[in-house]
């Protein structure tokens, strides 16, 4: 994954400007920054949902937005919103996405099992707690075994047990290249290779995690 001077405007305001970074396959990038710093914009841009307004973006070796169609099925995007229909059950939602991604239906049950939702899989999403919805959202993101995981605060609303349960799917051992946003200095740095700090749509720091301490991250939120 490569970005060179990537930027995106929202109206006349820059949502993200001049981001240059490179991430090798299988590595993890953690992104810190206060609300509105551009974390979500960066993820959505990498997910092909927003087209970059400036600079070059390459994902899985393909330039965006031109080759978006080629990488789309290989990206797992866990956004703020669960991207699940509230009136359908978890299982129905996953079946729906499985068909769109041309994944075998058996995979749905396997993923439901892996996030510990087999028991509540047939309840409408509207009746589930936020933690359960988050688990289903994780199941949806990894359904098609993506090569690149884009995770927007993946552990939000999850208790420690649930977090441990989903770790094999979205953690460092999942084998995928990962971009993770986080507000938690210690937890975020864990298992990451590279850290990016964003503040007011600009890059504040970009360095291997070993060189980044809680102090620098704390500085972002000041």
């Amino acid at each position: 994954m490569q970005l060179r001077g990537a930027g995106r405007r929202y109206g006349e305001r820059a949502a993200l400007r001049d981001v240059t970074l490179e991430l090798e396959a299988g590595r993890t990038l953690v992104v810190f920054g206060p609300n509105g710093a551009g974390k979500t914009t960066l993820l959505r841009m990498l997910a092909t949902l927003l087209r970059p307004h400036a600079g070059e973006v390459r994902v899985l070796g393909r330039p965006l937005p031109d080759d978006g169609y080629a990488v789309r099925g290989r990206i797992g995007f866990l956004s703020h919103e669960a991207l699940l229909y509230r009136e359908l059950s978890g299982r129905e939602n996953l079946r729906f996405y499985a068909r769109l991604h041309r994944v075998a239906p058996a995979r749905v049950d396997a993923v439901l099992e892996a996030v510990g939702m087999t028991g509540r899989g047939d309840d409408p999403v509207a009746e589930l707690s936020r933690g359960m919805i988050q688990r289903l959202a994780i199941a949806r993101a990894v359904l098609h075994e993506p090569d690149l995981l884009l995770l927007d605060e993946p552990l939000a609303n999850l208790d420690p047990a649930a977090a441990a349960q989903v770790a094999p799917l979205i953690g460092p051992d999942s084998g995928a290249t990962r971009v993770v946003t986080s507000h938690d200095p210690a937890g975020g740095l864990q298992g990451a290779d590279l850290a990016l700090g964003l503040k007011a749509a600009r890059v504040a720091f970009l360095a291997p995690t070993a060189e980044i301490g809680p102090a620098q991250i704390g500085e972002l939120y000041r």
Binding site: L49, G73, S79, L83, L100
Partner: peptide, 17 residues
């Protein structure tokens, strides 16, 4: 409305279809 409010657009756009 369901697509707009419940993220169905994003989910659909992420699929290789």
């Amino acid at each position: 409305v369901a697509e707009h409010e419940q993220g169905g657009f994003d989910g659909f756009l992420l699929a290789p279809v």
